[in-house]
């Protein structure tokens, strides 16, 4: 209920602002809705959203799985941590734009280059979060698993993974928002489709309704995925914890 109220307030502010600023700079909600409906009915909206979503999913899965594995290794093995740390600091501080441009120069304006560039941007934060999680693992529970001769996989699944789950959830949450932002830049710079490409076109034509139509549907998709997938996973991962007051 409160959410709905907050959303209505947002629409109201937008509408009032549109009346003051004028339709060219800030079109009113119905004007944007018209564009959304038009783009949806000719299929372009779904094509571009689909292309962007596919890139997000691929890059996200790639970065999360690789980042989690490397982070876990660096948290467990001192040598890996020492070797990997300078790389990690470099990657963490490398601007997204540099990675994307270099990827396109080195690998061509290809799908693989775009996805790799997005994944590389997300990778270091996943590593850092999972490394922290691994360092925080409870040694006494590891000992318990050893004494009771639990097979490796069972110990990993029931002893280690539940301890890492909150870190994985946090990394997924922050990672997803990072990927959402970067995917559009990668599309703008070197892809012939996707929401980022459409926004680029709208920018060149100063077509604000079109720009808003794409950005808002994209934001809506992000919101749905966040509430339908990420939050339930987070809640499940921390379900055994006593509830906060």
């Amino acid at each position: 209920m409160l959410r709905l109220l907050s959303f209505t307030l947002f629409l109201a502010i937008w509408w009032i602002a549109a009346l003051f600023v004028g339709g060219a700079k800030l079109p009113s909600p119905p004007a944007v809705l018209d564009v959304i409906i038009a783009e949806a009915s000719n299929g372009a909206l779904f094509l571009h959203l689909g292309a962007t979503l596919a890139r997000v999913i691929l890059a996200f899965v790639l970065a999360m799985s690789l980042g989690s594995a490397i982070g876990y290794l660096m948290g467990r093995v001192k040598l890996a941590d020492r070797l990997g740390d300078p790389w990690l600091i470099l990657l963490l501080n490398l601007p997204a734009l540099v990675v994307i441009v270099l990827a396109y120069i080195w690998a061509g304006l290809t799908e693989a280059a775009a996805i790799a560039a997005i994944a590389i941007n997300k990778l270091p934060t996943a590593i850092v979060t999972l490394r922290e999680g691994t360092r925080a693992l409870d040694r006494s529970l590891d000992e318990m698993a050893t004494v009771f001769a639990m097979p490796r996989w069972r110990a990993f699944r029931h002893v280690v993974l539940p301890q890492l789950a909150p870190y994985i959830a946090a990394s997924a949450r922050s990672g997803l928002s990072l990927v959402w932002k970067i995917v559009l830049v990668a599309e703008l710079l070197g892809r012939p489709n996707g929401v980022g490409f459409e926004i680029g076109v709208a920018f060149q034509l100063f077509d604000t309704p079109r720009l808003l139509a794409y950005s808002l549907t994209f934001a809506a998709v992000v919101l749905v995925i966040e509430t339908a997938l990420v939050q339930p996973f987070e809640a499940r991962a921390t379900r055994w914890r006593p509830r906060a007051a």
Binding site: S140, L141, E143, M144, F148, M150, H158, W240
Partner: peptide
Amino acid sequence: ARIGMVFQEPRLLPWRSVEQNVRLA
């Protein structure tokens, strides 16, 4: 030799139920 151990602190897995804790060992 199978080892059964009772640690000074219980060292149970907080994210598994009582039954699962026993069954996992």
